[in-house]
Amino acid sequence: MTTTKTAATVRGVRSARDPNLLRLLVMLVFVFVLMTVLRPNQFATIASFNSMMRQFPEYGIMSIGISLAMITGGIDLGVVGTANLSAIVAAKFLIGTVPRGAPPAQVVPYLIIAVLLSLSVGLACGTIAGTLISRFNIPAILATLGTQQLFTGIAIGITNGRPQSGLPLLYSRIGNTEFFRFVPLSFMIFFIVAVSVGIMLSRTRFGTFMYMMGTNPRAARYAGLNNTSIILRTYMISGLLSSVAGLIMMARANSAKADYGAPYTLQCVLIAVLGGIDPNGGFGTIGGVTMAILILQFLSSGLNMFNNISNFYRDVIWGGVLILVLVFNKLLSWREERRAVRKSMN
């Protein structure tokens, strides 16, 4: 009895987890093939891949940050605010201290300090959000809505909303480096971030703790997990990743400003959700999120190749795809569940 029951559920479990990745992959391939067929001379070209690789790392990294927060059962709406605030601090430092026309060798130490400064601002922002959520028990959605306002507000306050430009040339030179004239540095950073976060989630103790706490914080407490510290660390990582994204944006724009990329917040939440992160916490993989990022970028760049199709169709397709995936997942899981539930019913 037990044997047949569990055998059926093994199938159920496997097909419930992997197929989502599989479906995302199918979708990714579909979008890719569609765009390639429709725009054969434009889409599948080196130039277009190069362009795409320069575009998605900044919001891709922020999506990963949001995904981490969502795995622990929260959400981080403050990523863009954090990114801009940390970039502005770095920019202000560089503009204020680097002597004009200094030779590159002299600028390097300043750059290193600026990067460290920006990363620590990101960490600090994450710490604030994490503290509000873990210590003061403010629902994550509201706490980070508040920090988003707060960080953007501070960024506006210290710059009066003006772009911080006039960065040392070396910064964007390094930032816009392309290895083999094809692979942008920002892409490499994204790759490193995605792989290391992926490893953290699947291969480390802390990653398991995040999933477990996201599933059931109460049981986590009884199992000896320090929920406060897990939440805090998660938002610190998200803050850190945001500041990395901020540094990339700063290199791409050769300046920093309080509201660069403001619409990314919602986009990142959508990416995380399409990528299979459970908004209730406990499930989801970086592989899925990465595929969702690529799907969005293919769609977005593909649509830019159609002169008469408004960019807003991206939103339509995106929303539509999201809902269709949900419906599809649901119908499938219903089929599985009906089997499993009926069996476990007696």
Binding site: A47, S48, S51, R54, R252, A253, S300, N307, N308, N311
Partner: peptide
């Protein structure tokens, strides 16, 4: 033709231009 970003945002505008460059 005219091709704008979906929101008034510098980062998104830069992305549209990236794509236009790639299209040649």
């Amino acid at each position: 033709f005219q091709k704008g970003p979906p929101k008034t945002d510098a980062a998104m505008q830069a992305q549209v231009i990236e794509d236009l460059i790639a299209q040649g």
